[in-house]
Design a protein around this nucleic acid. Structure first.
Lengths: 151, 151
DNA sequence: TTGTTTTAAGTGTCAAAACATTTAAGTTTG
DNA sequence: CAAACTTAAATGTTTTGACACTTAAAACAA
């Protein structure tokens, strides 16, 4: 459905406003869909984000600040989120050898397995639940316009 | 900056993932910028969202559920947000004539003035702070692709 | 060395989101 | 009409985000 219908907007919007609101609305829509998909795994979207970051940097691991700088939402409290993952045995935390202020966080085997299970659930019928209508070229164009939007 | 640089991603991402993460990242970036702009007015982005919805439907006003259905983030608790606005004298709440379950919420004169002040702050040097690099056509294309993304 | 500054991580606190539940008024159906 | 159902708004509770502050370690400068 078009944005105007979704937001029941009566008057036509200027292009910049329409694009801006559409980004915020689509992100909220995505977050809602992700939350629903992650619920069976008792993970929130920020926790899932961290788990994927850790998986991408395995087996080396990352410091708390390194994780934070790679997150979608830079305002999240990584210390507490990592602690949640650790309590669920999805991540491990070991003190850094050289710099004793630092902590190295890694994904656990259980964490890797959970990521694999989530992937399987997402691609249930062969393709992703999200954005099936967009072609490869359109997806690239969308990402490019968003990069330009933030300049 | 491109998404890969922002997230310090090493490996190249598939197009769909790149578009999806970019939507989430750009929305977070936007929310952060809006929060900063609204801080001097002691308004949060959801409160500002409601104020604009009420302004758009003035002088008629809307019920709590009508506001909710027009919001960017459908999971927000409109009752409590409206109460905040009312305490700041930015909105008014009157019982509905026919249906006594309903409440009609309207923007106050002070609320309208605050919206005008915020607009003025946003367009400081003649044009919007956000997305100045995108042409009219690109903004339309971006909004169109996002509409299609949600299908 | 010693005092200052910077950096990494964790914590405290308050507001907001998430989600279920409750209350009350309206609607429908037997 | 009365009971069951539905809808509108509010509230209760738990979790999370926002953001300042603290603690501890490292780097730096006099």
């Amino acid at each position: 459905m078009k944005l105007e219908q979704e937001l029941k907007s009566t008057k036509p919007m200027p292009a910049r406003q329409r694009a801006t609101l559409n980004i915020l609305f689509t992100a909220s829509w995505l977050d809602c869909a992700m939350t629903r998909q992650l619920r069976p795994f008792s993970l929130t979207p920020p926790q899932y984000n961290i788990l994927r970051i850790l998986n991408g940097s395995a087996p080396k691991g990352l410091s708390v600040l390194d994780i934070k700088s790679r997150m979608l939402d830079r305002s999240s409290n990584v210390s507490r989120l990592v602690e949640k993952l650790r309590l669920a045995d999805l991540a491990e935390r070991v003190p850094h050898g050289k710099d004793r202020r630092m902590v190295v966080v890694t994904i656990s085997e259980k964490g890797k397995k959970m990521l694999a299970d989530i992937e399987q659930a997402r691609f249930m019928d062969g393709n992703d639940v999200v954005a099936p209508k967009l072609s490869e070229a359109e997806l690239l164009e969308l990402a490019h316009l968003l990069d330009k939007f933030r300049e």
